[in-house]
Design a protein around this nucleic acid. Structure first.
Length: 588
DNA sequence: GCCGTTTTCGGCCCGACTGTTTTCAGTCG
């Protein structure tokens, strides 16, 4: 079945046809809106089709829904196919290259008979080298050179970077900017500020009342390799590291409007402007314009901006154009969980040396307690991997686990000699593999000695949706299995999420009081935010853990807090904000 | 083609930047 992404691509292609052939701007936009909505769905459009709920997707009306029905039933839609045949297929191969939109793609593919999507980029490159574009109306030397560069870049296209990669780059540049005398402040925008798990471009806002004096200073930043484009309000630079950064300049009095505009998301802004239009207001980075008298209201911060629209402040993590504006109108924006609410970390790997199924940690319990103290925690859960399942006898494993327990206790006693107060509680658990058949990789008699268990998939990732669902539910059925660790198993940009029926798993967790982990390891961030939202709406609790193998990683838990916030979590949804007594009840 | 506590008809988010022109088209976010 076509994925949401594939459907969105098809709809965009049909939209492009309407744009270049029919110049039907609004029909074009209707298709683009539908594409955006489907791309941002948290469940598959196919599932909605099965439930006959396609028209509940905002932007999908009866016509597009009918075409999608046909697409799902027959594997293709005659309408989409027919529309796309009106242009040379090479046009679709050119779309997506930076600087090539529908109009240019159409003109080039038609003039040079680019009939194949797959070879279109190469064909165009060849035409450029043979100077075949020279002399075409509207194609000057600069534009042709730009197209060549864009296609070259496409061939070594980069994947979206991790938030943990992008943030430090932005942070370093921001420190530099803040040190410039006329700069009032600076801050990241876009997906960095909304704390998405991955980031495309790095956007930064600079607040100053003297843009013309400040910009030359900004461009002295030693990491810049070249200035890609420069205008009064926006400058795009490339860093020596290869990262591209957009710098937006805003004045103090319009700072709120600027931040709001460039924080996005695009869909949030579109929804917000549609809402503003009902109040005869028009929104832009410059302010809020009353279209009746053309008066512009300047917002110095975002609170003022939203207040002018009669809305409460909407945290950046929620600005995805889903239902946050509806909720804001009702004044129902939740108080999202914060890092200061976190009272402990339940997924930590110690340096206790024994034959585990996976990697050991490198830090002692003593070091972890010291770090926990600095982080203001009240409890820790130690969850080394289970002992090797096949290579050791049950009695050997028991010996190992008993020895581990003694070591943990002695480490704790040693640590407590060094501090006056603040006794941090310790839970002795394990992270246990979920085997292919859903059995836990630890024998029953050893399980009962644990305070709690995190159960996780570390193998057989490629099972079917049904097999994985059954396997996870079976594993969670054990009374000690309180937490499902890094549930989807994804490694961002490296390994896809496992296939599973998350609605069924969430229902099971709700019924049985099981907890879903939000693993804060930067390449995991798992549960992903969209599933966090589904889980929380269903009343399932989450636990935000760092999965540290080194005390230096314990502060990573903050990244998990951002994922939880993007999933609309309040502290009541997160078990490791609870008191130790209440936590124990949840782990039961 | 979609949508509706102004509307089932008549609207549909808003602006920056580049390049090619000389007032605008195309693309991007």
């Amino acid at each position: 079945m076509p994925t949401n992404q594939e459907i969105a691509t098809t709809l965009r292609r049909v939209a492009a046809v309407f744009e270049v052939i029919d110049s039907d701007f609004f029909r074009t936009r209707a298709y683009q809106n539908a594409a955006n909505a489907i791309e941002n769905l948290t469940i598959s459009a196919y599932d909605l089709f099965e439930q006959k709920k396609l028209t509940e997707i905002p932007g999908v009306g009866p016509n597009i829904a009918n075409h999608l029905d046909e697409l799902f039933v027959k594997g293709k839609s005659s309408h989409f196919e027919r529309e796309m045949k009106r242009v040379p297929a090479g046009m679709f191969g050119l779309l997506g290259v930076r600087g090539i939109g529908p109009k240019i793609a159409y003109r080039l593919s038609k003039k040079f008979h680019l009939r194949f999507e797959k070879t279109a980029k190469n064909d165009l490159l060849k035409l450029i080298k043979e100077n075949k574009l020279t002399g075409m109306e509207g194609f000057g030397d600069k534009l042709i050179a730009k197209l060549k560069t864009s296609i070259d870049n496409q061939f070594n296209k980069k994947v979206r970077m991790l938030q943990s990669e992008a943030y430090p780059i932005a942070d370093k540049l921001i420190s530099y900017l803040k040190a410039i005398p006329l700069v009032k402040t600076a801050q990241p925008l876009g997906s960095i500020r909304r704390r998405l798990s991955t980031v495309g471009d790095i956007d930064i806002a600079i607040c100053t009342n003297s843009p013309s004096n400040v910009m030359p200073e900004v461009l002295k930043y030693p990491e810049i390799s070249k200035v890609i484009s420069q205008g009064e309000a926006v400058t795009r630079i490339k860093l020596k590291s290869g990262h591209e950064v957009d710098l937006k300049i805003g004045r103090v009095r319009q700072w709120g409007s600027l931040l709001q505009h460039y924080t996005g998301s695009k869909l949030h802004n579109i929804s917000l402007r549609t809402f503003a239009a009902t109040k005869s207001l028009s929104l832009s980075e410059h302010g809020i314009k009353n279209v009746k008298n053309n008066k512009i209201y300047l917002a110095k911060d975002e609170k003022e901006f939203y207040k002018k629209l009669n809305l409460p402040y909407i945290p950046p993590e929620l600005r995805e154009g889903e239902e946050e504006i509806e909720w804001a109108k009702e004044n129902h924006i939740p108080n999202l969980v914060e890092i200061s609410d976190i009272k402990g970390d339940l997924h930590l790997h110690t340096s206790f040396d024994f034959p585990t199924s996976h990697d050991l940690g490198v830090s002692s319990v003593r070091e972890m307690l010291k770090t926990a103290h600095q982080l203001g925690y009240q409890y820790l859960g130690l969850s080394d991997h289970n002992p090797k399942f096949n290579d050791l006898s049950v009695s050997q494993k028991k010996k190992i686990l008993d020895k581990r327990k003694l070591w943990i206790r002695s480490e704790k006693q040693e640590y407590e000699k060094t501090v006056k107060s603040n006794k941090i509680k310790i839970l002795i658990g394990l992270e246990i593999d979920i085997r292919k058949d859903g059995e836990l990789a630890l024998q029953e008699e050893l399980l009962k000695d644990l305070d709690y268990a995190i159960v996780s998939i570390h193998s057989s990732f490629d099972l079917s949706k049904d097999e994985n669902t059954t396997r996870i539910i079976k594993a969670l059925s054990h009374p000690k299995a309180s937490i499902l660790g890094h549930p989807t198993g994804r490694l961002i940009n490296q390994r896809d999420s496992i296939k599973a029926d998350w609605l069924r798993i969430i229902d099971f967790c709700k019924a049985q009081g099981k907890i879903l982990e939000v693993n804060a390891s930067p390449q995991r961030l798992d549960l992903p935010d969209d599933l966090v939202k589904l889980a929380i709406r269903s009343g399932v609790k989450i636990c935000i853990n760092s999965d540290s193998h080194d005390v230096n990683q314990m502060a990573n838990l903050l990244s998990g807090v951002y994922v939880a916030r993007r999933g609309w979590a309040t502290k009541n949804n997160v078990v490791n904000t609870f008191s130790f007594t209440d936590l124990l009840k949840m782990l039961k």
